[in-house]
Structure formats: C-alpha cells, structure tokens
C-alpha cells in the first residue's frame, strides 16, 4: 500500500479521535450551548475559508464575493426544506450544486479579468446576488426566510467539513491542483505548458463556490433563518481575512485562520462595541508585520513542527 494512502488513513484517524473528544464533551455538556454554536460556526467558516483559498490561494484569482455563493446555498437549501418539504441531504445537494452553477456562470466571463479588476467584479457580483435575494418575496425579501428547521447537527457539520478538506487536499496534490498553482505563479507560462488556463480558473472557482454553497445550507439550517444581512460584503471580507491570516495557499492556514477569527469574535461577543475595533486593529497589525500570514503558503504538519525543532528538512503533502 502506498505511503500516501497510509498518511490519509492516519489523518482520518486523527479526525475520528478529535470528533470523539468534542462529541464527548458536548454530550456531557462540558461544552455549553454558546460554545457548541460557535463550534458549528467554526466548521462552517473552515469550509468557507478553505474553499476561498482554492480560488485565491491556489489559483491566485482574487475573489472577494464569496458571501454571494454562501447565500445561494443558504437560500436554496432552505427552499428545499421549508418550501418543498425535502430532507437535509436533498437540501445539501441542491444548495451545493446551485451555488456551483452560479459560480460557473459568474466565473466564466469574469475570470478573464486580472487582479484588482477581478476583485471588484466579484465583490459586485456578490452584492448583486444579495440585492436580488432582497427583492424576491418568495424567500422573504428584506425580512429573510424564517422558520427553517435546525437540521444541521454537530456530527453532520464535522464530517462534511472533513470530507471537503480531504477533497481540497487531494485536489491540490493532483495534476488539477498543479495546473491551478501554475496559473497563480505565471499565467502565460502555464498557458505554454498546454494548460487551458480558463478551464482551470473556472474549475477552481466553481468548486470553491459549490463548497461555499454547502456551508450556506449548514448555516441556514443551524441558525433557523436565512437573512440578506448575513451575506453582505462584510462576510466576504471576513472569509478573506481568515484565508490571509492563515496564509494564502495554505489549507491548514485557512483552517487555523477560521478557528482563530471565529474564536476571537466569540470571545469578544460580550463587548460588541470593541469587538470590531480590536478585530480591525489586529488585521492591520498582522498585515504590517506578517503580510504572508501565519504559515505563508506552507502546510502545517507534524513534519513541519519537527523540522522547526531540528531546523531540518522540508515537508510535502
């Protein structure tokens, strides 16, 4: 058996242990309701951050409209359960696929743009999606879609997150991921390597949007409501900050960024007036002193910790 497969099985083992530990603490109520809610939020944010990292970090396409796809997942999932009476699996599948379809339709024309122009276009598209939702009475318009059953459970959020993380990890370590990295590094050179750059940009964008949709379904079915105010560009910036905090191009970085920022938000929730101020100062200071984020584009791994201690070799996977 290949060593990579063994590494995967080991990672799954770690995930299972982690799950058992948290689940145990939830069942015995060592973790209370407030932190349970934030745990689920952390998982949703991890999905959002790692999926945005596929677009911004791996492929180097600067998107800041992720909240739009998050919204589509949230609303489409809720329509399935509230309006049409389907179960959660259907909601998850429909939410994921519809966000993916919109991502594809949006990505195809806009991914021709570079850098700042793409950023501002995706920002605009995210807002257009929100404004459209705001104007659809069928989903509650400005007051939001209410009465969504809480179908998201901790185990469900956890294992969906693990599955998505595996997907993204294996994507990166394949010819598909390499093509995306090549585009980030030098688009013209990638082109002359026989890589259809548009195809891979759209692919990364579509996959990233789909996962944001998955996160959206989990979100609206945990917090009982899908409200347009949850999906403004502030949300997109939040997700982007998680990715940049952890280090663009590092999946473990995005995971860490999502955990840290959600945790800080939660810890400061008793001081709402100071929360955003501290958050913003932290953002500026971080960028001034460590613009590449916590991990740069490296992945956190046991080898990395070991090599830090020994000052030694590089890690992969």
């Amino acid at each position: 058996m290949n060593s990579l497969v063994k590494a995967d099985i080991r990672k799954l083992g770690i995930a299972a242990v982690l799950f058992a530990a948290i689940y145990g603490m939830l069942e015995t109520e060592i973790i209370g309701a407030f932190w349970e809610l934030n745990l689920v939020l952390i998982m949703i944010n991890i999905i959002l951050a790692t999926s945005l990292n596929m677009i911004n970090g791996y492929t180097g396409q600067f998107s800041i409209g992720h909240a739009g796809f998050f919204a589509i997942g949230a609303y489409m999932g809720a329509i399935m359960t509230v309006k049409l009476g389907y179960d959660m699996p259907v909601a998850l599948i429909v939410g994921t696929i519809s966000a993916g379809i919109v991502g594809f339709l949006v990505g195809l024309p806009t991914l021709r743009l570079n850098g700042d122009y793409l950023a501002i276009a995706t920002l605009g598209l995210g807002e257009i999606i929100r404004i459209c939702i705001l104007n659809i009475e069928y989903v509650g318009g400005a007051s939001g879609l209410m009465g969504i059953p809480r179908l998201t459970t901790f185990p469900m959020a956890f294992w969906i997150m693990v599955a998505i993380l595996f997907f993204i990890k294996n994507f990166k370590n394949s010819a598909y991921g390499r093509a995306c990295l090549a585009i980030r590094e030098n688009e013209i050179a990638a082109d002359t390597m026989g890589i259809d750059t548009t195809r891979y940009k759209v692919m990364a964008f579509t996959l990233g949007a789909s996962f944001a949709g998955t996160a959206g379904v989990l979100f609206s079915h945990y917090f009982f409501i899908a409200h347009p105010a949850s999906f403004t560009f502030m949300r997109s910036f939040d997700i982007l900050t998680m990715v940049v905090l952890g280090g663009l191009g590092s999946m473990t970085g995005s995971v860490t960024g999502a955990i840290v920022l959600t945790f800080i938000s939660a810890a400061l929730s008793d001081f709402p007036e100071w929360r955003m101020l501290i958050y913003s100062v932290a953002m500026i200071v971080l960028m001034l002193y460590r613009p590449q984020g916590l991990f740069g584009d490296k992945e956190l791994s046991l080898q990395m910790i070991r090599s830090l201690k020994m000052g030694g070799k590089k890690n992969d996977d």
């Binding site: 390499r178 990295l181 030098n186 990638a190 390597m193 890589i195 584009d297």
Partner: peptide, 19 residues
C-alpha cells in the same frame, strides 16, 4: 524567464507533463 518561481523545481517540470 517565466518559471513557476514559488514552486519546487520538480513541480515546475511535473506541471509541464500536464497534458
């Protein structure tokens, strides 16, 4: 020169085997 400069040397070549 237009290399994939932030990637390892071996990956530069592996990318070229893409097709």
């Amino acid at each position: 020169i237009r290399l994939f400069s932030e990637l390892p040397v071996i990956d530069n070549v592996k990318i070229a085997y893409h097709m």
